[in-house]
Design a protein around this nucleic acid. Structure first.
Lengths: 331, 331
DNA sequence: TTTTAACGTGAAATCGTTTACATTGCGTTG
DNA sequence: CAACGCAATGTAAACGATTTCACGTTAAAA
């Protein structure tokens, strides 16, 4: 854990030369290189990323920030896994920031990330017009948004065609004969919720099913809101025969209620929602779902981020990946 | 985003004085303090955590490392949440390292963490005798282990009484009348697997059930091994009537097989295993499980870490939290 | 043989802090 | 009134790297 100074002293050269062999730039005589390498090994020297980052900010110091709304949601865990894996391949560490939909906390983390001089940031912002994040983008920090974009500003985005995914799902329900299809939305206001609702409404219209606003409920994207909103729906005098859920936490919550009410799936009520889970087959019946390629979203985001770090001028990319309707037992 | 220099210049003082007001140490005249505060506000100054960390290493620079084996496992996600939440309260960011049971990757991350001059580390090491991690501990890095300890060395540990948890679970199965109780273990060799197996065997003995080594299978703690090992068990000529699983991923895998084989739970085969999940009630039937207070493990670990950072000499604490047997529908 | 270029190296500035030490001025005290 | 303590502030070194510039040496080109 010595410093460059100690290495230099031991090898009998200056720190500049040590730096040169470490970074493989500049010319250095083979003999001295060997001497220095030996000294490095002997001292178990490891360069301080902190010092490096301080000295040359903006240059790659191999530290990314990741800002996610809710790590309890398996979708974001998968995104995170994709990010982590590719960051690792790129010799980078990540500072993980989980803001739990709390804007104060988001702000806190954004400030920290800035102050940590990260190379770049992958973020799922709380809002489309997150002022602080926007400012960081315009100030030149490389940023890639995932799952949600940023309005009125050019920024790289990786997400999914939410409207199409929802449309296909609800269309499938309709084609399967369901007529009273409910929608339990996640956080109202965030783009994905809006677009999924649009897909839902369009699919109803396409199948000549009248829209009934008593059949759509708005929650907060958490497990608990799935539980209670599903109950509200199923206790109506004329309950839905199928439920389309806005995300996986809500799905799980709804499932809990359905089981508690001892209803059969899909005979009494079918269920299908956004976000597949690797254990969808562990459920009984197995769970149908709209699959987002979460892991891939994470990977792509890192790719874009690295590109942008290398070339801050390249024009922004909006990458929309496809969803896949996983037809299984629950709908 | 100016530097202390700019603040100092604008306020007409030296950087030392600025530092003093920022850190609230040393004496500074009220009038100058106000001047400086105004300059800070005006320049939107934010101190560089990087510079601070470089200058004063070992002193609190509010950055922790977290090293987990598998972020896909909801248990570690919960631990992580606990850590994150408390770290946040402590104004700290965390570098998340997910080594996926890969020792090369673990080594890579440990080196990075060292090189990032973190204040302290919370880790679930790959082995009980993880040499690199041990060396970091003896070198003076504040470390708290979670879920798994480190052998032959004094270090703070937060975990759960695995043997007791397993014993209670299997004892409960036995008392419920099950006689052929299988065990699907996670990664062999890691302490938690060993202790859970011990609890399993002790419970069998306590209930006069002969141990049958064909009923214990060893996997790798992942979903897939639950799937295949469960199938092996259920296709025996004399299959088990209950399965005790070593962790939640295995449970989920086993569930998948049981469903695929169209067996009824718990009539044909009961299932109960380690690690509760917040959506245990979303399963049909609801899943019985040994609950580890994962979130609390994370919180406690941060508490211990902060204590150790403040007082590197305090003697080590081994904290064993209690498990809780969640009796639900599956066993 | 002289000019030029390339090579190999070191000195020193720099990044943005913290902090030990020095300095100044002023009120107390013997 | 000299000596002292203390409050308020500044100076400069350090943390550990990168990088620019300069300098000497040697080989190639003219």
């Amino acid at each position: 854990m010595g410093s460059m100074n100690e290495v230099a002293r031991l090898a009998g050269v200056s720190i500049a030369t040590v730096s040169r062999v470490l970074n493989n730039n500049g010319n250095v005589n083979e003999a001295t290189r060997v001497k220095i390498l030996k000294a490095i090994k002997e001292l178990k020297y490891q360069p301080s990323r902190v010092a490096k980052r301080l000295r040359s900010k903006g240059v790659s110091s191999n530290l990314f920030g990741v800002l996610v709304p809710d790590i309890e949601n398996p979708f974001y865990v998968d995104v995170l896994r994709g990010i982590e894996e590719l960051a690792y391949k790129n010799n980078s560490a990540i500072i993980m920031c989980n803001y739990g939909q709390d804007e104060r906390k988001e702000k806190f983390y954004l400030e920290i990330l800035q102050s940590e001089s990260i190379d770049g940031l992958i973020a799922a912002p709380a809002h489309e017009d997150d002022v602080l994040l926007k400012k960081m983008v315009t100030d030149g920090l490389p940023v890639v948004c995932v799952d949600r974009g940023l309005s009125g500003i050019d920024v790289d985005v990786v997400l999914v065609d939410n409207a199409a995914g929802a449309f296909n799902a609800v269309d499938y329900l309709a084609k399967s004969g369901y007529r009273r299809i409910a929608y339990i939305s996640g956080m109202p206001g965030i783009p994905s919720s809006l677009l999924r609702e649009k897909g839902y409404r369009d699919a109803l219209a396409a199948n000549q099913i009248p829209f009934d606003n008593r059949l759509v409920k708005f929650g907060n994207s958490k497990h608990h809101s799935g539980v209670v909103l599903c109950r509200e729906l199923l206790e109506m005098e004329n309950p839905p025969d199928a439920i389309f859920t806005g995300n996986n936490l809500i799905t799980l919550g709804a499932l809990e209620t359905i089981n508690a009410m001892k209803l059969r799936i899909p005979e009494d009520v079918a269920i299908l929602g956004f976000d597949d889970m690797y254990w969808a087959n562990s459920l009984n019946p197995s769970l149908s779902a709209v699959r987002q390629p979460a892991y891939e979203i994470g990977k792509r985001a890192v790719e874009l981020l690295i590109q942008r770090i290398q070339d801050p001028e390249r024009s922004c990319i909006q990458m929309a990946l496809n969803t896949e309707l996983m037809k299984r037992g629950s709908a």
